[in-house]
Design a protein around this nucleic acid. Sequence first.
DNA 1: ATATTCTATTGTAATATTACGATTAAGCTT
DNA 2: AAGCTTAATCGTAATATTACAATAGAATAT
Lengths: 109, 109
Amino acid sequence: MGLTKTEIFTAEQNQLAQLLKAMAHPARIAILQRIMASNTCICGDLVDELGLAQATISQHLKELKNAGIIQGTIEGVSVCYCINPEIWGLMTAQIGTFLNAYKGPVSCC
Amino acid sequence: MGLTKTEIFTAEQNQLAQLLKAMAHPARIAILQRIMASNTCICGDLVDELGLAQATISQHLKELKNAGIIQGTIEGVSVCYCINPEIWGLMTAQIGTFLNAYKGPVSCC
DNA sequence: ATATTCTATTGTAATATTACGATTAAGCTT
DNA sequence: AAGCTTAATCGTAATATTACAATAGAATAT
């Protein structure tokens, strides 16, 4: 045990869960907010601004990158991260569809 | 180590992360979708319809309840779960604000 | 070439999550 | 009361996550 039974769920459910999971950590939310705040991308600034070790930031960035939410390009000696516009759009739509499926309290407990 | 350093993040970041985390599992997404599908609430139906053990479903329901996303009322011998309208609304707004903070690719990598 | 800077990776410890069998608790039914 | 149904809880095993020090890799600067 201990591992999610992905095979019993739909691809959409698994994908949505994966995207939500990628953002479901305060550090990663902070990272995404920081990237969005400066249109121009950043990188090692995150290490200074958030109070986490460099290895930890790098690990969080990797998770966001694996989920496809951000992308990084090497800019000389440093790495420039930014939002992946397509994935962000798809994700926003997918989350919106899910959340808007709720049509208020009809007759419930 | 091994525990999230919540103290270095804002209350908003921690709260949003917590809500996202509560939904960041295909089983919990399936549960929420199932609850939304039948306006009228369900309970043990989930055990039959999802392919997970009763204890596992109960555990997932508990997490959703802890996050405030759903609420359960005892209905005789069974328990009726439904969406918590207020939290759902707040959550939708909070996630929307976060996702809409991204204003497309301005000049990035 | 050597040093410096920046980031990724490796290794590791602490903790959390996921899943399920077994048990308990609470409410009907007879 | 005794039995049945439904759901929560406990205990446990397997795996995943979070965080960091230490190290490695890659590009620039001296």
